[in-house]
């Protein structure tokens, strides 16, 4: 196996609130290889978004990374200065979010956004930056890019805004794209096009993707491997075919069974998810490899 691009080791992120301390991410470890798509699935509160924010050191107070290492090409991001970290963000690792409207400044045109990224990370200015920005928009399938570049975010549809976000993220040729529920707010047909786009960009640019989602359909269609999170822990991690064909952890098993599909039996109750760890299980939750690349909580082996 090639050297991992990203290696997260024993990451722990806690939130210190008036009501006590919450371990949002509880001692998780995973690797991401170059051009690999790793899915991180789980329900709200499982820690999947906090994991992705932790990788970029974007967790803000009252949250704090309290332990672990985030090795990026061998260098621990947790030891970098904020200035060094800024160079990593966007340049090496880019991120897109669920709701592009809140990530775009309404007073700036599409072009302003992309050109800002190009200036900050590549020192490109003027007509060179504009040309590069138009090319970036064309790359993500925005038709009529030379005129769209002067549009404001509110003049674009949700799908177009997400394409713009991807264009900004990709403008500096990152080696890793972190996509946090990138299509959750979009219609299915638009979602399908954005997923196709992400996949083809991975193939063309050899970019790895960390894909945070609650949608197992998207996982099945997009990912090479998947990590299943529950209450801040990774409970199971496996290649995509393995996880669907032979899930080992009861939570994964129940989650997969509970999903309605186009082939679900009409008018028939869905299976539900009831698993919660017993105290002994919680004590014995460290991942153990059961087959090549397939790990599961120790107690479930």
């Amino acid at each position: 196996m090639s050297e991992p691009l990203l290696s997260v080791r024993n990451l722990e992120t806690q939130f210190f609130t008036d009501d006590g301390t919450i371990k949002a991410v509880d001692n998780i470890s995973f690797d991401l290889a170059p051009r690999e798509i790793l899915g991180v699935v789980g329900e709200s509160g499982s820690g999947k978004s906090v994991t992705s924010l932790s990788v970029l050191r974007l967790v803000s107070a009252p949250g704090k990374i309290t332990n672990g290492q985030i090795l990026w090409k061998g260098r621990d991001l947790l030891t970098l200065s904020e200035r060094e970290m800024r160079a990593i963000r966007g340049d090496d690792i880019a991120m897109i979010f669920q709701e592009p409207m809140t990530s775009l400044n309404p007073l700036y045109t599409v072009g302003n956004h992309i050109q800002e990224a190009l200036l900050l990370h590549q020192g490109l200015k003027g007509s060179a930056a504009r040309e590069r920005a138009i090319a970036a928009l064309e790359e993500v399938g925005i038709r009529d890019a030379p005129s769209r570049i002067d549009a404001y975010p509110h003049q674009l549809s949700g799908g177009m805004r997400q394409r713009v976000m991807i264009a900004i993220a990709l403008s500096c040729n990152p080696d890793l794209l972190i996509a946090d529920e990138p299509t959750t707010a979009l219609d299915v047909t638009v979602q399908a096009r954005i997923l196709d786009l992400m996949r083809s960009l991975r193939d063309e640019k050899q970019m790895a993707i960390l894909l945070i989602t609650h949608n197992m359909g998207i996982v099945a269609e997009m990912c090479d491997r998947v990590a299943v999170m529950h209450q801040g822990k990774i409970v199971e991690m496996a290649p995509i075919n393995e996880i669907f064909a032979s899930p080992r952890h009861p939570y994964t098993q129940q989650l997969l069974k509970s999903i309605p599909t186009l082939d679900s039996a009409p008018k028939t109750q869905l299976a539900t998810v009831s698993w919660h760890p017993t105290p002994e299980q919680a004590q014995n939750a460290q991942l153990v490899e059961v087959e090549a690349g397939h790990s599961v909580s120790a107690w479930a082996v």
Partner: peptide, 19 residues
């Protein structure tokens, strides 16, 4: 048909988008 085809299928053996 277009709407149905766009729904991601939670089964890698049948997924269409898979490279």
């Amino acid at each position: 048909r277009e709407l149905l085809a766009a729904v991601p299928i939670p089964d890698p053996a049948r997924a269409r988008r898979k490279a």
